[in-house]
Design a protein around this nucleic acid. Structure first.
Lengths: 352, 352
DNA sequence: TATAATAGGACAAACGATTGTGCAATGCAA
DNA sequence: TTGCATTGCACAATCGTTTGTCCTATTATA
């Protein structure tokens, strides 16, 4: 008997009071022992010992809700990401989570689906859950809601995309130099007609890359053909459409610079459909190094970003902001990229 | 003046009491209005209106911590994943999060790094945060801690890997038929010496796939060469090592069945190093369809799993369990796989 | 011996919300 | 005018912790 109940009834939570009552002390004392303040409040060694023992026996585990309500600290951080299924972001997320849990913090994850409205709602939800801080990879076109957060004093770190008018810590890749280097490489290989399939316009990521693209042209004394800049999102479909447009031009550009891993995948479909070969007929460089990059039909030359580092640094920035509350650390960290040379770029005999 | 302070001082939180005081009612009334219980408690229309208006004016947002402490419901679920950077898992995670937020729930994410100990600690942390339920993709070799959860009455849904001795809801792929179909296909293409690079042993995923592998052999009246079953984890390195071993055998197997996307990537490195071509020299089928599968040097024949559906179903199962508390729904859902034919399997002239 | 100092811990008020119950005022019927 | 329902809301406890303060012995000091 009792067996049935024990199956149906949820285990009752053990509280400080339970422990206190069981050994005949006050719940204050128990709290102080279990939070390691025995000395500070002169709890005798004997009592301390007993409290710890019974806490262990009863399997006491502190209620973080109650604790947070009182202390105003949840040890929880919010993470807002435009698309967690994208390995670029999930790698960042992973490293954030790993660092966080090392110090007993948890991550509440929100996927904004590249939608500013959802981003705003997600952030509101996270705030109502009283996260200690926020790491946001913003959709990137609007920043008013982020400015509100900064003003509210809630620690915030922006990753991947940032806003020049937002006074807030961030960690991003050096998109300018990444693009510059890639496009210069195209030039060195004698390419002169280089299409750029861009990502979401009006994001810092995109603007910086375009700036690199333009400066590379400038360095080689070549005017930018504006019609070679196409596209409007970081997704695969945009890559397909962008490539279709570029490949239909005549003369056809000899090279394509793709602004993301998904864009280059989409572009490859278009290239296949047109019966073209990489790099014989068309060269390509893609932003974002991926585990599969070297195994593609033509191993892909890529601009690698430091994803693990991004996550780790973002976390540490946020944590320090949370700890020194009051002093809003607004350092911006820019991580270098690396051009990974493979086989997707053809060396042309003459500048073309 | 005051400007400086407004920058340094965190915005004070608006509480029910603030609202109540401002309009001269009790905080009880405010609570009842804002939780939509005006009628039930006969709050006059006038009062209701005023309360709502001031709540809006003050920008009131309920403190989910306090609410949860009282109601015993956090509207938060825990999600434990062995490796969130793996697109297979991150796709599942994404769909869980999207479904969850649609109904105002949040997801606390934990990455167990394929380590049972970390899995246990993560779960403990989530429990202390009073999640309403748990979705766990277990490392897979131990289930005692999961059994504890089931017994404690905390709603739990297992995904991807399950335990036959665990009475708990789950949603997994039909790994048996997935493997069966793949290996049968090898046989139909006249392969008779088929290596299997397995994942983590003692996981249901792995056992089921091996069972499929064996049954395919049985159906074609062929004994299984146990030395062709190699490997012990789902990672890339294991794929590399496993392939090295298989390729070193003589006679060399004509085909490799890889138990995960990462395993096949690793295997491809080994295959390249040996100077072999897919599928001319060696055929390969990989578990896990990926966005890049069709773009590989040789487009990869894969066993596709329904990742989005897995996430969505897992969430719904958990939600229903949370809502009908008491009746532990222990349905198990098995999702069919699909063999995606591409070019990585060669048709042999004669059974070899 | 009187007094101060110290040791060891208890009380009770928070934190912000929810909720069972109680209470005054009004309306209505008798 | 009395009695009873109904309307409209307030009281106060509660969820589990934390924390400033206060209290009572005991010991040490003068």
């Amino acid at each position: 008997m009792g067996v049935k109940e024990s199956f149906l009834v949820k285990n009752k939570q053990i509280t400080l009071d339970n422990i206190a009552e069981k050994i005949g002390v006050s719940c204050t004392t128990v709290s102080r022992v279990l939070t390691g303040q025995s000395k500070k409040y002169r709890i005798s060694d004997r009592t301390t010992e007993i409290v710890q023992q019974t806490a262990r026996d009863l399997g006491y585990v502190p209620d973080q809700l109650a604790r947070a309500l009182r202390t105003k600290r949840t040890n929880t951080m919010g993470l807002v990401i435009p698309d967690i299924s994208n390995p670029f972001f999930s790698t960042i997320a992973r490293n954030i989570e790993i660092q966080a849990r090392k110090v007993g913090n948890s991550i509440i994850l929100a996927d904004s689906q590249e939608d500013t409205q959802l981003e705003i709602e997600s952030i509101r939800l996270l705030q109502s859950r009283k996260v200690d801080g926020l790491i946001v990879c913003p959709v990137g076109e609007e920043s008013a809601h982020l400015k509100d957060i900064v003003n509210s004093g809630l620690p915030l770190v922006i990753i991947d995309r940032y806003f020049t008018d937002l006074d807030c810590a961030y960690v991003v890749s050096d998109n300018y130099h990444g693009a510059l280097e890639a496009v210069e490489y195209f030039f060195q290989m004698n390419h002169r007609s280089i299409g750029y399939i861009q990502g979401r316009v009006n994001t810092s990521v995109n603007s910086e890359r375009i700036r690199g693209y333009r400066d590379a042209h400038a360095r080689f004394g070549q005017a930018v053909d504006e019609s070679l800049i196409v596209g409007d999102s970081f997704g695969k479909r945009n890559g397909y459409i962008g490539a279709k447009i570029l490949l239909a031009k005549s003369p056809r550009p000899t090279a394509i610079f793709a602004a993301s891993n998904l864009i280059s995948l989409g572009a490859m479909t278009a290239i296949q459909e047109e019966g073209l070969k990489i790099p014989e007929d068309i060269s390509i460089i893609s932003f974002d190094e991926q585990p599969y990059s070297e195994y593609l039909a033509t191993p892909m030359t890529t601009v690698a970003q430091q994803t693990s580092e991004t996550g780790e640094i973002a976390f540490k920035l946020l944590q320090s902001q949370i700890q020194n509350e009051g002093s809003p650390t607004t350092e911006g960290i820019i991580l270098p990229t690396e051009l990974v040379f493979r086989k997707s770029v053809k060396q042309l005999k003459h500048p073309t």
